[in-house]
Amino acid sequence: MPIVVNLDVMLAKRKMSLTELSEKIGISIANLSILKSGKGKAIRFSTLESICKVLDCQPGDILEYMSTTDYNKLMRFG
């Protein structure tokens, strides 16, 4: 799916760890890891709202659309 989750980028910008985010928004680290690694199938508006609130950002900062070719390249070369 060519939707990339840039949660790690935002976490780095805010100098926040995944554990800290997990504690602040009340979602388990396991679920946040699924989201961060791009294995998640969907994200609830409530989750997105909590993440945006804590990280002080917009949904577009976390989610990004990429063309299939670019996405495949990214997946291939990490």
Binding site: I27, L32, I34, K39, G40, K41, A42, I43, R44
Partner: peptide, 8 residues
Amino acid sequence: QKEADLTI
């Protein structure tokens, strides 16, 4: 069910 499990 899998989709629901992977919905965060």
